[in-house]
C-alpha cells in the first residue's frame, strides 16, 4: 500500500495530518502500538520540519507486511551541513516555529532515535529528501 500526502510550507494547521492518517492505518493493521508511536513521532517531526523550513513537499508512505518506508521530499532551502543539523540543539527555526512549540534543534535527533534507518539527501536552494524505514518486528 502506498499513501501520499501533501505538505505546505508555513501551514502549521495541517502539520501532523499525514502522521495522524498513518497512525490510523497502522492501528488497523494491528502493528505493535509501541512501534506505531515511534513511527508517527518520527513522521510528525519530519512533517514539522518541512512545514517549518520548506516551501512545499510531500510524504510518501509505503506500507509492506513487515515494514514501513516514509519518504519526505521537499522544495526548499535545503540543509547546507547535515552533520551539524543532526546535532541536538542546533536549530535554524524562525520565531514563528518556536511559538508552535518546536525549533529547539531536536527534530532530526528525534527522528533518528525512532526509526531503524534514516537517510537524508539535500541540495542547497533546491530541497531535501528524507527516507525513514521502520520494521514492525522491533529491533
Amino acid at each position: 500500500m502506498v499513501f501520499r500526502y501533501e505538505l505546505e510550507g508555513g501551514n502549521f494547521s495541517k502539520a501532523g495530518h499525514a502522521s495522524s492518517e498513518i497512525k490510523k492505518t497502522l492501528k488497523q493493521l494491528s502493528v505493535d502500538p509501541r512501534i506505531i508511536k515511534r513511527i508517527v513521532v518520527a513522521l510528525y517531526e519530519a512533517e514539522v520540519n518541512v512545514v517549518a523550513h520548506a516551501w512545499k513537499g510531500e510524504v510518501l508512505a509505503e506500507v509492506e507486511a513487515n515494514q514501513i518506508t516514509l519518504t519526505l521530499r521537499d522544495e526548499g532551502p535545503g540543509i547546507p551541513d547535515i552533520p551539524l543539523a543532526m546535532q541536538e540543539g542546533y536549530s535554524t527555526a524562525s520565531p514563528a516555529v518556536r511559538q508552535m512549540g518546536f525549533g529547539a534543534g531536536m527534530g532530526l535527533p528525534n527522528m533518528k532515535k525512532n526509526v531503524d534507518e534514516l537517510e537524508i539527501e539535500s541540495r542547497v536552494g533546491v530541497g531535501t529528501n528524507v527516507r525513514m524505514v521502520t520494521r514492525f518486528s522491533g529491533e
Binding site: 494547521s13 502522521s19 512549540g101 532515535k113
Partner: peptide
C-alpha cells in the same frame, strides 16, 4: 517544548503545558 513531549516513552501521562495551539493536541496524539 513539543519535541520533549515527543520523547516520552511512558504511558498514562498528564501533560502540563502553557503552549496552547493545535500542535499541542497533535503532539499529544502522536
Amino acid at each position: 517544548l513539543m519535541s520533549d513531549v515527543l520523547r516520552l516513552d511512558t504511558g498514562d501521562v498528564l501533560l502540563i503545558t502553557g503552549l496552547c495551539n493545535l500542535q499541542t493536541i497533535r503532539t499529544a496524539e502522536m
